[in-house]
Design a protein around this nucleic acid. Sequence first.
DNA 1: GCCGCTAAGTAATAACATTACGTAAAACGA
DNA 2: TCGTTTTACGTAATGTTATTACTTAGCGGC
Lengths: 150, 150
Amino acid sequence: MSTRALRKEEEENLLRRADDLCRQNNLRLTPIRERVYRELVQSGGPVGAYDLVDRLSSDKKRLAPVTIYRALDFLRDAGLVHRLATQNSYVVSHGQPDVNAMKIMFVDSKTGETIEVHSTEVAEAVRKAAEQAGFKSVSPFMEVEGELSR
Amino acid sequence: MSTRALRKEEEENLLRRADDLCRQNNLRLTPIRERVYRELVQSGGPVGAYDLVDRLSSDKKRLAPVTIYRALDFLRDAGLVHRLATQNSYVVSHGQPDVNAMKIMFVDSKTGETIEVHSTEVAEAVRKAAEQAGFKSVSPFMEVEGELSR
DNA sequence: GCCGCTAAGTAATAACATTACGTAAAACGA
DNA sequence: TCGTTTTACGTAATGTTATTACTTAGCGGC
Ligand SMILES: [Zn+2]
Ligand SMILES: [Zn+2]
Ligand SMILES: [Zn+2]
Ligand SMILES: [Zn+2]
């Protein structure tokens, strides 16, 4: 099976999982929301909001920024998408939400490429540090910039 | 001694350390740069760039945004100030740069208040996770949102 | 059919950040 | 010391990201 086919299959998996998640939580994955999510899935990496505006607009129909931001807000609230604050961009969240793990988005400083890793070790270490800082709870998401090996 | 006096003393310490650091590295802590740094120190928390524009402008003399951004860039390059990407704001970096520690900025989701903690444990755990992700090096700074205890 | 609710359309604006170019002073080498 | 180079800052315009306010449309219960 080709890489392309694998990739396609992975895309379908993500879309299906999103559908399921929304159904189970009584959330409405409307056409616009699904198109935004699909675009993020297909891009395979972070995409800016205004890029999404362009990509999802046709000659006939130009979407407004606020439409995209609303869809992104929905997808983020659902846990399907992360915002990368350092990049002003948005990226699909992979992996099933493991409550005990820290979801770390490593962002390549050069290319903007991201890789998501879940780590209970980091979660535990951060939890301890948070306690020191007087924080009772912390977000399970973080973003770390770095350099990719190759 | 009053809390206010302690605070004032701490401010003076930071300013002095900044002066020293710049002298030792042949960096020029010009009046504008020092005013920006001082304002951040005195505020005791994160401040937005346009807030700094307002606070450092007088009726006579209005500073341009780019002036502030240039000063911030200098201070960040010098390691004196961090940018909080999730908040679009800037905050003084405390503590002497410990190369082996991760500098974690905990940001209170409600108030925006920040507390900086240095942790070698987190640094080590993140380093391991980075290796998994195929990253050879990572930034020693991270930002984590959470909720302050009180 | 009306009501209440949610999503999306539309327009304007706010908030954040950078580019481009000119001037002046500081630093540096001869 | 003089001319050259570099750095900092002023000024103006522009670019980029995100939100507010209000309206319209669709859907479901009653
Ligand atoms: Zn679907
Ligand atoms: Zn939301
Ligand atoms: Zn000084
Ligand atoms: Zn810089």
